[in-house]
Amino acid sequence: MIRFDEVSKLYAGTARPALNAVTLEILKGEFVFLVGASGSGKSSFLRLVLKEENPSKGRIHVLGNDLSRLSHRKVPFFRRNLGVVFQDFRLLPQKDVFANVAFSLEVIGKSKGFIQEAVPDVLKMVGLAGKASRLPHELSGGEQQRVAIARAIVNRPAILLADEPTGNLDPLTSAGIMTLLERISLSGTTVIMATHDAGIVDQMQRRVIELVSGQVVRDERQGGYQTQAVPTLGETVDGTVSNPVTKGAAQ
């Protein structure tokens, strides 16, 4: 689904790489937390998956595409398979809920009939059934994030990337958003969520990848926010086993 091979990312004008020789694999349907301090490379990781940036070194495969070989013109079509959610929602303030979700389908050329069917469905799924004609500023933060999630998944992407989706929300609202993301994951979508929220990570007990200064220092199944086991990175050095999770999955 997603594979990083010795990927490094060095932004122009900086000496320290944002990502340093990251190798990992994420499988179909997995729910993955990406944790680490600010500046540890979480956002760079997500941007690389989206091909908003190109790696300085290494190879990235997403959904069977070698991203370095993906031509400029094919990138938009590649992105139709990925949904993205941000901390700041990024809704269009002058469009109502329905139009915000419909916009993402209109601009990729979906038919009016398809939009009329898909949008109410997805709004119902995220729990906004009665609020299709509200404007974003008339909604609470949690509801706005639900609109953003609806927009991200309305085209049924194979992968959902979430960059601190609960960063602006209170714990209770966050829990609601997590329930929603979990449901999306159960329907077969791979979810990758970058977060600082220790409570959520500890509670969900999913795969956790921890980044420190651009390096993967921990990759645990059913991990918590803090390190509980000794990292098993030593195994990746010889290149035979990429990480403990895939090893576990292979067994």
Binding site: R80, L92, P93, S104, V107
Partner: peptide, 17 residues
């Protein structure tokens, strides 16, 4: 620019943009 950012994110083709 907001619309443009979202269009690029959801995969609107360059020609469409």
């Amino acid at each position: 620019r907001r619309e443009l950012g979202i269009m690029r994110l959801v995969g609107a083709s360059n020609r469409f943009i």
